[in-house]
């Protein structure tokens, strides 16, 4: 009987704890997103727009180039100009 009481207690405590922790995951996630959006928004999107405007209509290729440069340089490199040789 004692063990059954313990199990019921664990059902309550366990489910509440899991819900609380995942609620915290939601809250923390939202807070981090808001903080990042406000203080360190990504610059790549602007670069893509600039390159798209400057070079012309082939948007998929340009997006691929910008993404590749971003990955290889770990976000430090920027595409300022694309020329066909």
């Amino acid at each position: 009987m004692n063990e059954l009481n313990l199990a019921l207690e664990l059902l309550g405590v366990g489910m509440i704890t899991v819900f609380v922790i995942l609620a915290l995951v939601v809250v923390i996630g939202n807070l981090i997103i808001r903080f990042v959006n406000r203080f360190i928004p990504e610059e790549v999107q602007e670069v893509v727009k600039k390159v798209e405007k400057a070079v012309g209509p082939d948007r998929k290729k340009m997006a691929a180039i910008v993404s590749a440069v971003n990955i290889v340089t770990n976000g430090k490199g920027k595409v300022t100009n694309i020329e066909k040789i």
Binding site: I21, L24, V25, I28, G29, N30, I32, I33, R34, F35, V36, N37, I40, P41, E42, Q45, G75
Partner: peptide, 22 residues
């Protein structure tokens, strides 16, 4: 309501903050 503007920064901060809180 909210769109993520810098997913990489969020993904880096998330495990650190979550780890401490949990």
């Amino acid at each position: 309501k909210v769109k993520i503007k810098n997913i990489r920064a969020v993904k880096i901060a998330f495990p650190i903050v979550l780890g401490i809180i949990i």
